[in-house]
Design a protein around this nucleic acid. Structure first.
Length: 477
DNA sequence: ATGTCC
């Protein structure tokens, strides 16, 4: 049985090529960012095959890219990045975005020191668990009418702020200002709207979380300062997406686009890569629906931020203004966006082109922007900063998290609730979970060490480490 | 990720 050495060609310590010769239908090479120790595992689970499959799709520009947290996903690997040129028959694919459209991370700063929060830690945990609904199928306090749903789908986080759930500064620190212009509510099914109408402002389940954290380590003083961060300062991180709404949009369009694949005679190495030309009516319709789901998710995270502010204020006996709770950044890691990027034109000259950039389990990392990389609930998360190199190599994209080491079922076999809670308690981490089973599935040891993923990104130069954040309170579904 | 199967 040949090993990874037969597939990956070393470019340097952090870059590995999957050459076109791997599969005859590949239109371009794959490029994986990883250290050598990561290669056997991802080779064993065939994640590289999914990277090669994406390289077979029409209109792909540059490499089929893979981040160090790559693992198997629906069609496209999670941790995959690929750009397509609409003028060259380039495609858009629901599998290249993922079921949780605009799954993303929001991080807030406070002016609180970790010792102040430590004194009130149980009150804070209780308030957060009470104010922010979580768990499978969880519903919130807002029930959207048809008309209000339309507004959420076009205005995103701005709808929340307009209705008193936040301030304009929050919008200014959200990717795309919390709303993509391409959204069309009429492209979304009645079914998706029904599933979503009571779910806005809810955390969900699985790896989604709300954490109170503190700045444990600073790697880059200047960047930390620019983000308003110093050692031992308390931050709050929210990781969630578009809930059942985005899931339904994805399901609907996987079905719809199967017909488009036949109609436009697109060769697929894997049926899960179902897609349509960006410029086709079907492709445009998916894009409009996907933008609507992205806006739903930004509204969701904005509402959760608002209730987080209120929870903190109540628990600390102060106003949100006194606590200085403000948004550092909100960035998505599951999306396809139309972005202008530099590409090589005829004769090697550089030109700017509008591309459809798929980021599936990959975070946008534009120069100077914060890059939010959650880890697991027992160890740490990171804030990085984007660089010019990422613009040149990965369409301004990097990793999105740790990735699982054990399956959910394996985690359930290996760990139990009582021991897990005792272990987290020993580390001073207070947990509120809607489901015991759900929590055990999320045991820290079920995840890879996010430090290794972040170090590959840092050492390759795609993004730079700014701070490491240590959890204090974990709220999970 | 997900009304963890329409």
């Amino acid at each position: 049985m040949p090993g990874w050495e037969t597939v990956f060609q070393k470019v340097d310590d952090y870059r590995w090529l999957i050459p076109r010769s791997f599969k005859p239908e590949m239109r371009t090479d794959g490029l994986l960012y990883a250290d050598e120790a990561m290669l056997p595992l991802l080779y064993k689970e065939n994640a590289h095959v999914q990277v090669a499959n994406v390289a077979c799709l029409p209109g792909i520009v540059g490499y089929s890219l893979a981040m160090p947290d790559i693992h198997l996903g629906y069609g496209f690997a999670i941790g995959g990045v690929a750009a397509f040129d609409p003028e060259q028959g380039g495609v858009i694919s629901p599998g290249g975005v993922g079921y949780d459209i605009n799954c993303g991370v929001r991080v807030l700063r406070t002016n609180l020191h970790k010792d102040e929060v430590r004194k009130k830690i149980n009150d804070i945990a209780n308030e957060l668990a009470r104010e922010v609904p979580s768990g499978v199928g969880s519903t919130g306090v807002i029930s959207l009418s048809e008309k209000e749903m339309d507004k959420v789908l076009t205005e995103g986080a701005k709808w929340a702020v307009k209705n008193g759930y936040g301030v304009n500064d929050d919008i200014e620190h959200t990717e795309a200002n919390g709303a993509l212009a391409g959204a069309d509510p009429s492209a979304v099914s009645h079914h998706a709207r029904e599933r979503g109408k009571d779910q806005v402002g809810t955390l969900g389940s699985g790896n989604h979380f709300l954490e109170v954290q503190f700045v444990e380590e600073i790697y880059d003083e200047a960047a930390a300062n620019a983000f308003g961060l110093q050692k031992d300062q308390v931050t709050i991180m929210v990781h969630t997406g578009s809930r059942g709404f985005g899931h339904q949009v994805c399901s609907d369009y996987i079905n719809i686009l199967h017909k488009a694949v036949a109609k436009y005679n697109i060769y697929l190495p894997d049926r899960q890569l179902v897609c349509a030309p960006v410029n086709s009516p079907e492709g445009k319709q998916y894009f409009s629906a996907m933008c609507a789901a992205a806006n739903f998710a930004w509204c969701n995270r904005q509402l959760i931020m608002h209730w987080t502010r209120e929870s903190f204020a109540k628990a600390m006996g102060a106003t949100p203004q006194q606590l200085g709770i403000s948004l550092i950044y909100d960035v998505c890691h599951n999306i396809a966006k139309m972005e202008k990027h530099k590409v090589k034109g005829v004769g090697g000259s550089e030109i700017e082109k509008l591309l459809c950039v798929h980021r599936k389990g990959a975070t946008r990392a534009f120069p100077g922007d914060p890059v939010l990389v959650p880890g697991d609930m027992g160890r740490y998360s990171y804030i990085m900063v984007g660089t010019e190199l990422a613009m040149n190599e990965t369409w301004g994209s990097v990793c999105h998290g740790a990735g699982r080491r054990l399956s959910r079922s394996a985690a359930l076999r290996k760990y139990n609730y009582k021991e897990l809670m005792a272990d987290l308690d020993k580390q001073g981490i207070v947990v509120r979970s809607a489901s015991r089973k759900g929590l055990v599935e999320e045991a820290p040891e079920a995840y890879k060490d996010v430090r290794e993923v972040v170090d590959v990104v840092h050492n390759s130069g795609l993004a730079k480490k700014v701070v490491r954040l240590r959890p204090m309170v974990v709220v999970k579904g």
